[in-house]
């Protein structure tokens, strides 16, 4: 009698039920992708797997953290003194500027009250540290060290000292993923600071280049113009610098001018970012800036 073992020996390459398993796994993958792409039902799954992978991230980041720590440790007294002098000078300067700012702010509030407009609430910020730049080079995204535990929410705006950096796209429990404004999937409503012209800034996939695809040919925009957030998308608070217009090429045959801009924030160099908890935006429905 030909037993099962006998056949198996004759055809040793056969793995039992391989095709079936593959089909089942493909079906599961497709279902997962469908639901993941449609809406955020799978965020909890993502979060729990992300938490499991977290120790690995820490281990990978350890040499870099150690190097930074070691660098801090071996800074000489001399360097520290120079830095202190420098910082003191800078502090003095900012203080002087701040005095002026306070006066201006007070004046602004008074004027707004005169105009019966609502006084602008100052935005609350929270500093977050960038843990990793995402491994996928086509996603311009960052992982930051705060999550929903600290009140981070999807769509929250991220800025650095010079301007808008991006927004949170996946708020995990302890870490969150944020998309940079240079990502090709990112668009941000802005206005030209000089004259209030409203338009949209879109990422190009290059870290130091943004484009403004919807500026009509006769629009009043020129190189050197500062673009600030208009706040119209609902996710970003108004008035943060985004980019400086780099070049404007007007081609009469095309409906729109070709406008490029350089991000105000140093997207490739930041180590710390600030998360903005603006009054009201927390309740804004979804991510309005996409």
């Amino acid at each position: 009698m030909l037993s099962f073992r006998e056949t198996n020996r004759r055809n040793p390459g056969r793995i039992p039920a391989l095709g079936l398993r593959v089909l089942a796994l493909i079906a599961i993958s497709i279902a997962l992708m469908y639901f993941d792409n449609r809406d955020n039902h799978l965020n909890t799954v993502r979060k729990s797997i992300g938490a499991a992978v977290y120790p690995l991230r820490v281990v990978v980041d350890a040499p870099i953290s150690f190097w930074n720590w070691f660098g801090d440790l071996t800074t000489t007294r001399n360097e520290l003194e120079t830095e202190l002098d420098h910082l003191n000078a800078e502090r003095l300067l900012t203080h002087v500027r701040l005095q002026k700012l306070q006066a201006l702010e007070a004046e602004n509030v008074r004027l707004r009250a005169l105009l019966e407009a609502r006084a602008r609430v100052r935005d609350e910020v929270r500093v977050a540290e960038i843990m990793f730049v995402d491994a996928n080079p086509y996603d311009h995204s960052l992982i930051i060290n705060v999550g929903s535990r600290d009140g981070v929410f999807n769509g929250q705006a991220l800025v650095d000292a010079k301007g808008v950096v991006g927004q949170v796209i996946k708020a995990g429990l302890m870490t969150s993923q944020a998309m940079l404004i240079s990502d090709t999937d990112h668009a941000l409503p802005v206005e030209v600071n000089r004259n209030g012209l409203r338009t949209i800034v879109v990422g190009t996939g290059e870290i130091d280049n943004l484009k403004l695809p919807f500026v009509v040919n006769n629009a009043d925009i020129r190189a050197g113009d500062l673009l600030v957030t208009s706040g119209l998308g609902g996710a970003f608070p108004a008035g943060y610098p985004v980019a400086v217009v780099n070049s404007v090429t007007r081609n009469p045959q095309e409906p729109f001018a070709e406008v490029t801009a350089t991000p105000a924030a140093s997207l490739g160099q930041v180590r710390e970012v600030m998360l903005i908890f603006a009054g009201g935006t927390r309740n804004a429905p979804g991510v309005g800036d996409e």
Binding site: S29, I30, D36, L42, R46, N136, Q177
Partner: peptide, 23 residues
């Protein structure tokens, strides 16, 4: 799946591709 989570891609994308490669 692990790769999808760490790379922030669609959940199941790398899983599907790797699964077919393994097959």
């Amino acid at each position: 799946i692990m790769l999808d989570v760490t790379q922030g891609t669609l959940l199941g994308q790398h899983a599907l591709a790797l699964c077919i490669v393994a097959f």
